Simulated assay, not measured.
Amino acid sequence: MGLSGTFTKQVTDELVQQFAELSGDHNPVHMDEEFAKKTQFKHRIAHGMITAAFISTCLAEHIPGQESCIYLDQTLKFVKPVYLNDVLTVKCTITEFIPKKNFTIVVYDTTVTNQDNVVVTSGQAQCMATK
């Protein structure tokens, strides 16, 4: 336990546009700067689920010694907004192993911070270890 992985990526306008197309979520707070200026955010913000997708990437690709995992569960708390050009770092830390008959469930604390080390998303994930 305590083993962790990290993943860092910048949230660009292109990424937000692609995510909107993929998800079908074209909320103007994500897509329209003029609209967003009139909100409490004052600028466009990224979809919260982009941070969840980054957690998935970290779990699947950046945990040392883990060849593969099947995502089973995720809790998410969107703590702060993510703005365009923020650089996000995901950290997934193993907190528990739950042995089952034919596999093991691995429990992780998941945290996403921005370039100022402010937590923007937090939660817990569970994956089925495939090896």
Rank of each mutant, 00 (worst) to 15 (best):
D25A: 02
A60G: 15
E34A: 13
F54D: 02
G65K: 14
L72Q: 02
F54G: 12
E33F: 04
D86G: 14
D32P: 01
A36Y: 08
K38Q: 15
K77C: 03
V79R: 15
E67R: 12
H30R: 06
H26D: 02
R44E: 10
L88M: 04
L88F: 04
D86C: 14
T51H: 00
T51L: 03
I63L: 15
I50K: 11
C58L: 00
D73W: 03
F78M: 01
L84G: 05
H47I: 04
Q40G: 01
F35V: 11
I45E: 08
I50D: 04
L72Y: 07
T39D: 12
F35W: 07
I63H: 08
T57C: 04
Y83M: 05
D73M: 09
H26F: 09
A60N: 14
L88V: 01
V29R: 15
A53F: 11
S68A: 15
V87Y: 00
E34Y: 01
T57H: 07
H30A: 09
T39W: 07
K37L: 07
I70L: 15
N27K: 08
I45R: 01
I63Y: 14
E33S: 08
F54E: 06
A36R: 13
K42N: 02
K77T: 14
F35I: 03
C58P: 00
P64H: 12
F41A: 07
H62E: 13
Y83P: 13
P81C: 02
I63R: 09
D86V: 00
L72A: 06
L76Y: 09
T39H: 12
I45Q: 07
A60Q: 12
S56F: 06
K38P: 10
K80I: 03
P81T: 04
G24K: 07
K77A: 03
V82T: 14
M49R: 04
K77I: 10
E61S: 13
E33A: 13
N85I: 00
T57F: 06
G48T: 05
M49Y: 06
H62F: 14
Q40R: 15
S23V: 00
K37H: 09
F54R: 03
L88P: 10
A60C: 07
E67D: 09
D32G: 06
I55V: 15
C69T: 07
Q66Y: 12
M49P: 10
L72W: 03
N85Y: 11
H43L: 04
H43V: 00
G24V: 02
Q74H: 09
K42I: 01
I55G: 01
I50P: 14
I63Q: 13
F54Q: 04
I50L: 12
I55D: 03
Y71P: 12
H47N: 06
D73R: 08
D73Q: 04
I70H: 03
Q66K: 05
D86H: 13
H62D: 15
E67K: 11
R44S: 07
H26C: 05
T75C: 12
T75S: 15
C69M: 14
A36L: 09
S56Y: 10
T51W: 03
M31T: 05
I70N: 10
